[in-house]
């Protein structure tokens, strides 16, 4: 309403302390307590997964003489029927799940941002063709498709973990592309884009130097949420017996193996399950925090 507050702040000369946009974002993020706590838990848990073996003395492939024991000082999460230390296995699983999901999110984010920006910038036929692909990927029931792919790779003699990650990544970019396309549609109307054109900037330059950086807020938020999706997807695959092959473990494969004994030896199912739930929740909280920090308008609207 009144012009004063805006005008006065806008009139603030450069003599005041320089504060970059990212510093402002960081400050707003730090004000979001749940997100900060979740971020700390996430980083701590990941680092701690490397300390599991030196700390407890058990490696994830090692077989201990203790079979089917409940949690104890020696085996924090107990052991399974053949003597695996479940804590070591859970920590290994955590690490694997994180790696897989980061690779997935990385691939999906790069593909989604670039293709989305290309769609939004060129419009017309390019947009139409890519849009068709996006629609196709969005309506495709992901899990069955991945299961089919999983069966094939298993038949061809075991799949590497990263192969699974890459395949999931190739399917998950579509929603982000749609978001970025929408953003680019509004960014392309901004005068600084026309200014870049007037300077003689190439399409590549406009896409990578102007469009994508200005859509970065949405991209970062969406990438974080893709990490969470990827963890769950990998878990679901492993739970159904696809993807990860023994002796490698992931949180999903652990929960899968433990589910039959959920009543008798609860620790085999519930403890890796709890790690999984905490992991996904934390990623989502961080995503929420980033969204609020990167998009203050959204915060005000609430």
């Amino acid at each position: 309403m009144a012009d004063a507050p805006v005008g006065i702040l806008a009139g603030t000369p450069a003599e005041t302390e320089a504060r970059s946009q990212w510093q402002l974002v960081l400050r707003r993020f730090l004000a979001h307590r749940l997100a900060v706590a979740a971020g700390i838990v996430l980083v701590a848990a990941y680092l701690f997964s490397y300390l599991a073996e030196p700390l407890t003395g058990w490696g994830y492939k090692e077989l201990s003489p203790d079979l089917s024991q409940g949690p104890s000082g020696n085996h924090w999460f107990g052991t399974d029927t053949i003597g695996h230390d479940m804590f070591a296995q859970s920590m290994r699983g955590l690490r694997v799940s994180v790696h897989v999901s980061v690779v997935v999110a990385g691939i999906a984010t790069v593909l989604g941002s670039v293709l989305g920006a290309v769609q939004g910038w060129f419009r017309g036929r390019v947009d139409g063709a890519l849009g068709l692909l996006v629609d196709f990927l969005l309506i495709l029931p992901l899990l069955p498709v991945l299961m089919v792919l999983g069966t094939r790779t298993r038949a061809s003699g075991g799949s590497s973990l990263m192969f699974v990650a890459v395949v999931i990544g190739l399917f998950l970019w579509a929603p982000l592309a749609r978001v970025v396309r929408g953003e680019v549609f509004s960014i392309r109307e901004k005068e600084y884009i026309e200014a870049a054109e007037a300077l003689g900037a190439s399409n590549t330059r406009i896409i990578f130097r102007h469009l994508i950086p200005n859509a970065m807020s949405s991209i970062i938020v969406y990438a974080t949420l893709t990490v969470a999706t990827a963890i769950l997807l990998e878990t679901a695959l492993a739970f159904l017996g696809f993807g990860i092959q023994p002796p490698e473990v992931s949180l999903g494969s652990l929960v899968d193996e433990g589910r039959d004994s959920a009543r008798t030896r609860w620790w085999l199912f519930y403890l890796p399950g709890a790690v999984l739930v905490v992991l996904v929740l934390c990623v989502n909280f961080v995503g929420d925090g980033l969204r609020d920090a990167l998009d203050p308008r959204r915060e005000q609207r609430r």
Binding site: M1, A2, D3, A4, I8, G11
Partner: peptide, 18 residues
């Protein structure tokens, strides 16, 4: 000029400030 407070003083008179 913008930011001189000219509008705000009148908005206050109208009871229209946030």
């Amino acid at each position: 000029e913008s930011g001189s407070g000219k509008s705000v003083s009148v908005m206050a008179a109208m009871g229209l400030l946030p």
